[in-house]
Every structure is written in C-alpha cells, then in structure tokens.
Amino acid sequence: MLDRLLNIDRRIIFAVLATIVIVAILFPMGLAIQISEPAKKLYREIESIPPGSYIFLSFDYDPASMAELDPMALAVIRHCFRKDLKIASLGLWPQGVLLGQANLEKAAQEYGKEYGVDFVNLGYKTGGIVVISGISTDLRSIFPQDYAERNIDELPLLNGIDNLEPFKLVVTFSAGDPGVRHWVMIAQARYGKKVGCGSTAVQAPAFYPYLQAGQLVGLVGGMKGAAEYEQLVKLPGLATAGMDAQSLAHAVIVFSIIFGNVIFLLKKRSSSG
C-alpha cells in the first residue's frame, strides 16, 4: 500500500492540479488577498509623486511572462494616469515594447490620455546596461525616434527632456536580464534615481536584498504581487481573478509535499522495524 502511494502516477497530480485551477477560475470564491509591505512601498512612492511629474517605465519582458507582468504593468500604468503622471517608457526586451504599448493604450483609453502628450514609448534598443547608461546622460542620442519611428522632437511630452534627470521614479517590469539588476546598477547606483520594480516570482527573492538596502523603493513580485497592486489601486483585474486558483493550487502542492513526506517516513519506519 505504502509503495503504491509513494509511486502515484505524476499525471494524476497534474490532472488534480488542472481541475482545481479550472474550477477556481470558473467559480471564483473571492479569497482574501493580504497586501505585502514591498508592494505597499511602491504604491506609496508613486502616490507621493506630485501630479504632472514624469515617471519612467521599462517593459523588460516577453509573452512568456505576460501572465505575471502584464497585470502589474497595467495596474501601475492606471495608477500613474489616475495621478496625472506623464509616462515615458522603453523596452530592454524587444517584445516588451509592444506589450507595454498595449497596456499604455488600454489605460490611456480609460483615462482619456493622449500619445505624445501624456505618454510616449521610445521602443527597444539592444545593449541593456549600455542603453540605461546612455539615456541617463543623453536620451536623445540613444532614442532619436520613438517605437513607431516618429521623431521624438515631435512628441510634446519630451520637450526639454534630455536624460533621466526629470523623472521622479523608474519602474521596471522585469522577467530577467537585462532588467532590475541593471536598472539598480546604473540608474540607482550611478545616477541616484529612485528605482522600483515589478518582477516575475522566480526572480523576486533575489531582489529582496536590494529592497532591504534601499536600492529599490518597492517590489511587486509575481501574480500575487500584481493582485496586491490591483487591490491597492482598487482596480481588480486579471491578477486578482487568478488568486483563487493560485491559492488552491498552492494548497494542493503543499498537501502533496506533506503527504509524500509522511508516506516516505512511514515507509522508512516500517522497513527499519
């Protein structure tokens, strides 16, 4: 019996997990979401920026991590537009440019914002850390055109802006390198800019030391973090909707780990006895 339990076909676990996730998506229960301090910090930082100020967003991800980063990007953009902040953005990952643009346009429609006046998207440049360094000193030489090849001199939002200096905060939505690490290394450490981040859950633990050291002003980690931010801005979206499924799936995994270990110990005891 113990042997059979120790050798459960992994496909049964997959099936249970899939069923739980599907049921939780189809029949939401609205489980409570506790908001963590790192997400609150980013929210408070954006909240403290005076209306009309500039904020810089970097979309450093691709479709593989959309499920986690798109909801948090949208929530942060909505927060910025609601606060009347002017957004300049870019992508250190090529596909991040259009994913970010889709979110910008979606939120712009909701808040009646206009491209070129309230937000711009500079596009993608290869180089990662070199791009960050470049825009910190001379944005116009690195990005003479925006993502759609419009001359940036024609974009009113960027009038008189030559580098990162006027931006009160940089927020990067990052799925890897180049991303958070590089923004902290260059924009924060070298040029003294405040940097916040939204990151995939996989890499979030690596950024807690930056947060603790004050090198990051806030951290939104994974879909859970995105749901927290949606709660903070009081605009529930995809991440909030996914939290029931996330919580139940975690419960299944925790149960599986405990169950496996208990059976293993029982088996070990019966073998030694």
Binding site: E68, G222, M223, A241, A245, Q246, A249
Partner: peptide, 12 residues
C-alpha cells in the same frame, strides 16, 4: 508560484 501563474494565464 511563478509556474502556477503561467498555468493560470494559459487556462484564462
């Protein structure tokens, strides 16, 4: 958590 998030994204 990250992997489950991706699964949820696909199911959505």
């Amino acid at each position: 958590m990250a992997r489950i998030s991706l699964l949820i994204g696909r199911f959505y």
